[in-house]
Write a protein that binds this DNA or RNA. Sequence first.
RNA 1: GCGCCCAUAGCUCAGCUGGAUAGAGCAACGGUUUUCUAAACCGUAGGUCUUAGGUUCGAAUCCUAAUGGGCGUACCA
Length: 592
Amino acid sequence: MTIENNIVRHIQKAVSALYQSEIELDSIVIQETRKEFEGQITVVTFPFTRFSKKLPEQTGAEIGDYLLKFIPEINAYNVVKGFLNLSVSDGYWINQLLNTVLSPDFGHFPKNGKKVMVEYSSPNTNKPLHLGHVRNNLLGYSVAKILSANGFDVVKVNLVNDRGIHICKSMLAWKLFGKGETPESSGLKGDHLVGKYYVIFDQEYKKQIAELVHKGETEENAKKNAPIIKQAQEMLLKWESGDAEVMGLWSMMNTWVYAGFEQTYDQLGVDFAKYYYESDTYLLGKDIIEEGLQKGVFFKKEDGSVWIDLTSDGLDQKLVLRADGTSVYMTQDLGTAQLKYDDFNVDQSIYVVGNEQDYHFKVLFLILQKLGKSWAKGLYHLSYGMVDLPSGKMKSREGTVVDADELMADMIHTAKERTEELGKVDGFSEAEKADLYKMIGLGALKFFLLKVEPKKRLLFDPNESIDFQGHTGPFIQYTHARIRSVLAKAEYKERISREYLMNLTTVERELILNLCKYPAIISMAAKEYSPAQIANYVFELAKLFNKFYHEESILKAEDLAVRNFRLDLSSATASTIKNGMDLLGIGVPDRM
RNA sequence: GCGCCCAUAGCUCAGCUGGAUAGAGCAACGGUUUUCUAAACCGUAGGUCUUAGGUUCGAAUCCUAAUGGGCGUACCA
């Protein structure tokens, strides 16, 4: 039992003994003591005054006396207005460090027997990945790691949107203007090559619209009747009918794209247990439509289209099947949800998808509930904000995107320059240098994206490079390297100090307190699906260590016992940083 | 029009289920290295938490409205 739980229980008893009143455990508020006051744990005593019928100060003192008497670890208290500040003995904190924080399974929760699926990335195959996808990928990967650390069995899946009009646009433009260009012939990465023709299509399309408008067509008609869009639509129909030539072109270009994506995923460090392809799933869901009609959840209009009426839930009427019997997005998502459940039998399923689709998922989940799917309550849309440029939203068609591959390469290059300037790679082999630059460059990028709450939108200014100092990945990586360097000098292997009585300095105590918070942070991060919780925690921890490092000497501590203790404290900090960063998908070096 | 989300220092962001004088980083200014890595540390300055009501012993946090910004509201995905 943690000291906090112990305190809460004793407060309950204290209120009962002192004021003959019963109080709920939940209503007892405990928090960290603010730096300017003495103590580590603070009890808010305002709520107890209605039982004590006394002033907050007096109530606090009475409860303080009670706790002092019954909890041996508490050795002092002070009262400031309605706040009871408790001082816990240094012996307790030292014991926590040695027996809890330094234990091998610290921060790892036992298996909870639950299975969760995380669907993320989910790219379209008509263009390369950009910064928005990077945020998605990092979020999905990190959330999967966090859930796993919390004891879940995690299945990562990628639902690839490999069909549809947008892919046909790239295909058509390549066919018309590509002159047989291939990744091999041009040296272009496959996804970039296909993306190039997506842009070309759009340029040509706009040109044709302009011509038609010039000839007197309305804008709306021009958009509908431009020859190139008609051709793309025809191509889509041919694809759907299985036309051999179109299918051949489609699979060739998709193969290029997949090779490109693999490279990007690999560089980013993300992976998947299974890929789903929309070309396999887009016809699914029709049986669910039938099921819904029979259950009376859906209704059919005169023209044959199928709808659900969600007005009683404060939403609209929503189409689930077209009049011609073909699928819409919702149809296939209903089918795919069922497929994913049938495949893996998961307890929870998380969709990492941008907030522009909030409404879609609200409706999707509601429909599945109305259909009585037992697993519907385990569905969750991890909605995240768009990545904006100073100029506004990124648009692939208009080329105003921050390309994922380029950005990663830039970051690694900057890391190289920085590191060389600082002269920190003496004695590194070329391979070690390359690894280090990648670790730092991507560490900066990943931390930059993950430190922000997923829900919030994120501003990226390509003209201002991502920082390597301050609230950044490299700051934390540096702290880790610093610790490892000290430990290496001491030839530290494993826990070396014993339990003994000593007085902690303020920073030491703060550091231990911070380390003790780690498991709670991990579980909160899982509950909120928020890597940002971990990012900000690890930053605090690193900052605190640097303060400690600056104020106290580790290797040259006056007393051997103190030296050993500080080595243990440093080691515990290093592992916690490493583990926390690992949950973000960020590596930490031993030297930098 | 209707619905959802966001608004905290010049900039980028924290702030747990309501709790003490709202915190970091960057940028600015000043200081710290013969001592374990200065990608660091310390200090100064910077705030009517968008606004107005309400609930409460207590509100950046909860409720209502307004303002500003984003997104959605397709027989697109």
